[in-house]
Amino acid sequence: MIDEIAARFPYWATAVLIVIGLYGMIAKRSLVKKLIGMNILQSAIILFFVAGSLREGASVPILFEGAPGARAEDFVNPLPHVLMLTAIVVGVAITGVALAFLVRLREEFGTLDEESLLEQVRR
């Protein structure tokens, strides 16, 4: 079991982070904490991609004078990094929108506690 986890450490770490993120989104009453949970979830996925692109003993994917070699396996896979740049942008955009929502909600309701928000809406 330990060996299994150690051998695939990044996967298990991702899984644990995702569960933490989801837990935060479910269990926390504060909308800010829910948002933090969402961020953890997104970060976990970014980590997953980056970890997946890792290659033991490979170099930065930049072809320069005196690079160790020019074969594909000499470099870390650059594509997931590029994808994650996009994903981070998307994530930031969502977080930004969500924060803007929170500001408006706070202005409107005077609280960010989910229960009392729903209580106020229901009335």
């Binding site: 569960v19 989801l22 989104m25 479910i26 269990a27 989910e114």
Partner: peptide, 10 residues
């Protein structure tokens, strides 16, 4: 409750 949906996802 939103929690139900999230629990389903989980």
């Amino acid at each position: 409750p939103l929690g139900v949906a999230l629990a389903a996802v989980l």
